[in-house]
């Protein structure tokens, strides 16, 4: 660009947040669809996992992209948080929030919570160094993800961590989705209310979708 240094420009940074945010949201959605195959029993999710494992190159490319996007999103997120905090050095003795929400004001904290949860989640189900043991195989010699998830999500501590992570996610998304529309300049005046509503709805759908798995396990719908 002729006039500005994009990644050091406050609107530029926000656009980077929005752009990476879209992909992260996209990932969260695809991951949910993938996970939902658990409702088809071991034949669903185990087959899905086997399919993924049969394309290691693709999976790794995808993982690297995700790592890159996560890192960029986190890096600029923290930078913006610090800069914005610096722009308001003295707080008000009394301050009323007029339109700002709990979600909008706590993006940094819900974001960090998601990052922490993500690490736990990877250690839990991907690297399996926490609680769940090595991944077995099912009767059809597929990786038995089904049993692993059932084992992993029936433990109370990990269940609490998952609910905590999902709560952070729903808050982060409810503000993040509508925010990216605004930052990318898509929202018009007429669209604004709908965008906010749709954003909240999408976040809640993701929340319910993910929560449905442990709920189904506890309710005994999904069992060994």
């Amino acid at each position: 660009m002729k006039f500005i240094n994009f990644s050091n420009h406050l609107v530029g940074k926000k656009l980077i947040m929005a752009f990476t945010g879209i992909f992260l949201f996209f990932f969260v959605s695809v991951h949910l669809i993938g996970n939902s195959s658990i409702f088809f029993g071991p034949d669903g999710i185990n087959a899905y996992t086997q399919k993924l494992h049969s394309m290691p190159a693709l999976v790794w490319i995808f993982r690297l992209i995700m790592i890159a996007f996560f890192s960029i999103h986190i890096y600029f997120g923290i930078q913006l948080y610090l800069e914005n905090k610096d722009s308001k050095p003295v707080p008000y003795a009394v301050k009323k929030s007029l339109r700002a929400t709990f979600a909008s004001k706590n993006m940094i904290w819900t974001g960090i919570s998601i990052a922490v949860f993500l690490i736990y989640h990877l250690l839990h189900f991907t690297f399996r160094v926490i609680s769940v043991g090595p991944l077995g195989v099912d009767s059809m010699q597929r990786p038995d993800v089904y049993s692993m998830v059932l084992a992993g999500l029936t433990e109370i501590p990990s269940l609490i961590i998952y609910i905590f992570g999902l709560t952070a996610l729903v808050l982060h998304l409810s503000h993040g989705i509508q925010s990216l529309f605004q930052t990318a300049g898509i929202t018009t005046e007429n669209m604004q209310t709908s965008v906010i509503k749709a954003s909240n709805a999408a976040a809640v759908i993701i929340f319910i979708g993910y929560l449905a798995i442990p709920a189904a396990i506890i309710a005994g719908i999904l069992k060994y």
Binding site: L10, N84, D86, S87, L98, R99, A100
Partner: peptide
């Protein structure tokens, strides 16, 4: 600062 879309 930058805009965080709080709409305050």
């Amino acid at each position: 600062g930058a805009c965080s879309n709080h709409y305050e």
